[in-house]
């Protein structure tokens, strides 16, 4: 993945998470992965198109998702209901949109697709044809792994 793409995603994730959760966020070490990755339980996916093709996946456990949704809505949620799901979807949208805006300022043209949310047990995401950058974020209510896979259009 081009190094110019990395920072916008890292910064956008950090800024948005810190802002919406209103608490400290710690970024873990970035790494690359090309094998299939288990999904923790809740995954929000945003597709990218334009100069490039790819996707951004926000992966977290159900408990973390409920925790985030509770903080963002200012009320204690106990299950991941429609409101909770909409909140996580919106979070994915916020982060990706800010990253794409930053990339636009650097001269790269990206479009994004509306986010989709997946929930379930024992899910796996396959990265077999493209290498993914993993940005782990530690939050007060758990961790989110941001999985960015982008390649130039041939």
């Amino acid at each position: 993945m081009r190094v110019e793409y990395i920072n916008p995603f890292v910064e956008a994730s950090y800024n948005i998470l810190k802002e919406v959760l209103n608490s400290e966020v710690v970024r873990g070490e970035l790494y690359l992965k090309s094998s299939s990755t288990p999904v923790l339980g809740v995954a929000a996916l945003v597709g990218l198109a334009g100069d490039v093709e790819g996707r951004v996946l926000f992966d977290m456990t159900k408990d973390t998702a409920i925790g985030i949704a509770s903080i963002m809505n200012g009320e204690k949620l106990t299950v991941l209901d429609e409101l909770g799901k909409a909140t996580i979807t919106e979070l994915a949208n916020l982060i990706t949109a800010q990253a794409v805006t930053k990339l636009h300022d650097l001269g790269f043209k990206f479009d994004l697709t509306p986010p989709a949310l997946f929930t379930g047990e024992n899910m796996e995401i396959s990265n077999s044809q493209v290498e993914a950058l993993i940005v782990p974020m530690k939050l007060s209510c758990g961790k989110i792994e941001i999985n960015v896979a982008i390649r130039e259009r041939a």
């Binding site: 993945m1 081009r2 690359l32 044809q129 493209v130 290498e131 130039e152 041939a154």
Partner: peptide
């Protein structure tokens, strides 16, 4: 020049 963070053992999309 395209500088990329990449592990040479992973699949690439080079022509």
């Amino acid at each position: 020049i395209f500088f990329e963070y990449h592990d040479a053992l992973h699949p690439n999309s080079l022509p």
